[in-house]
Design a binder for these strands. Structure first.
Length: 384
RNA sequence: GGGUCGGUGGCAGAGUGGUCAAAUGCACCUGACUGUAAAUCAGGCGCCGCGAGGCUACGGCGGUUCGAAUCCGUUCCGGCCCA
């Protein structure tokens, strides 16, 4: 169930009801691919304010295995997270693992057919086949609250013809996901509407207007609970994102949540919110934090309205690379007005020191700070 | 005192006549990172110069050689062994 609380300009504020809790949108979800937000415990994620995290079907399927997690009582119980979980389908791994294997070995690490996608693990040569039906089954076993359809996420650049074939495959797979979802939902005994997980479809079509429109029509033709825009930030020019949103969003039903997958930088998120997107996920705050890049509010925008933030482009914040030598003796917090655990207790010099000696506590502090920055951003974007 | 082995860039450690400003690792500096095979990856790291290039360097000094981090002599320093 998704209810819109307010709409002004392109901005939407809403509430998304899942069986594990109600979520205010627009929202950002930290990424817990393998069942943990790297270096951070669930209670810390919740303490920042987050209520939705993202887990990954592919990775949890291989390790420790979805059956194992089911036996543990589901992913919520397994990882001690009692709020909603969205699981990605493994579709992104078609892209990321394929690219990675191609760069490293000159061959694609994935084999795609109508029926399924086969992943070859280049480390041990083992082969794993994931079909749309299997992806949904795994996500049921994980106990996901928001289930994503298995899609094909083609890399950029991608020819028009290849993008068309890819999107049409994604549509056929979406229907198969939907069908399997219905079967599994019925099979689970007497589930009321509120006890069922939600199922989201994914729109593809690369950077082509006609294909994005085609994909949007096809995917919204299926009665999904929400719609995701995928295949973005896979190497295409930045301006394309704006165009894709411009093509797709007007074709989306207004009463269902919209999820922009994998995005992004703070200014990209702000712009996408103003265009009508409700949900985001991205590795940037955690990964870049671990690597020493930290986000800092520009003082002028700290108490700004969401309109001002969007209009400022990317000047509402700046980043520092805390590994730079100039922070060696900087005994002030990353951001003096930030309320996160890192900023209220530790200096840049200390965090830099921890990161430079590879002490995991440093990565934890950096991740906590960046996740707080992203949370604060979303909170501003949710404020009237 | 005698013998012996060794002294190479911030550190460790290759190299043992030319292709050596010197492998590799660590450290250090700067970037990158967008549904996470990412505590990862890329570049830089003697001095001067945008550059071509020049200069200084493999403990010191002196030789041999067209040419030496590499060979010889000597000296200083260190490890081990014997007195």
């Amino acid at each position: 169930m998704f209810t819109i609380k307010s709409v002004s300009g392109g901005f939407r504020k809403g509430k998304l009801q899942t069986r594990s809790g109600v979520l205010d949108t627009p929202l950002f979800m930290p990424i817990a691919t393998k069942g943990a937000v790297k270096h951070i415990g669930p209670e810390e994620i919740q303490a920042i304010g987050y209520e939705l995290i993202l887990g990954n079907t592919y990775h949890l399927w291989l390790r420790p295995g979805d059956e194992s997690i089911k036996e543990a009582g589901g992913l919520h119980a397994f990882m001690n997270w009692n709020k909603p979980i969205l699981t990605d389908s493994g579709g992104f791994q078609v892209f990321s693992l394929g690219e990675r294997a191609r760069k490293k070995f000159g061959i694609s690490g994935v084999k795609l057919t109508e029926k399924n996608v086969e992943f070859t693990d280049p480390l041990n040569g083992s082969c794993h086949a994931l079909s749309p039906e299997r992806s949904i089954e795994i996500q049921f076993n994980l106990g996901s609250d928001i289930i994503m359809c298995l899609d094909e996420c083609p890399p950029y650049p991608c020819s028009h013809n290849a993008a068309r074939m890819s999107l049409e495959l994604t549509t056929r797979w979406a229907q198969r996901c939907y069908d399997r979802f219905q079967i599994l939902t019925k099979r689970s005994t007497n589930k009321t509407q509120s006890q069922k997980p939600l199922l989201f479809g994914i729109i593809q079509g690369s950077i082509y207007e006609d294909l994005r429109r085609q994909s949007t029509k096809e995917i919204t033709g299926i009665n999904f609970d929400g719609f995701a825009i995928g295949g973005v930030a896979v190497g295409e020019p930045r301006e394309k994102l704006h165009e894709i949103l411009k093509w797709v969003i007007p074709l989306l039903p207004k009463d269902k949540p919209r999820y922009l997958m994998g995005l992004g930088k703070p200014e990209e998120i702000a712009a996408a919110v103003s265009a009508g997107i409700d949900m985001f996920d991205c590795v940037i705050p955690t990964r870049e934090g671990r690597h020493g890049r930290l986000f800092v509010w520009n003082e002028k925008f700290r108490d700004s309205s969401c309109e001002n933030i969007v209009q400022s482009g990317k000047s509402f914040y700046s980043t520092i690379n805390i590994m730079n030598e100039k922070f060696r003796d900087d005994f002030f917090p990353i951001d003096r007005k930030c309320t996160c655990y890192a900023c209220t207790h530790y200096s840049k010099a200390y965090i830099r020191h921890l990161l430079s000696i590879n002490e995991p506590f440093g990565q934890r502090l950096a991740s906590l700070h960046n996740l707080t920055f992203y949370y604060d951003l979303m909170k501003k974007l949710r404020t009237e």
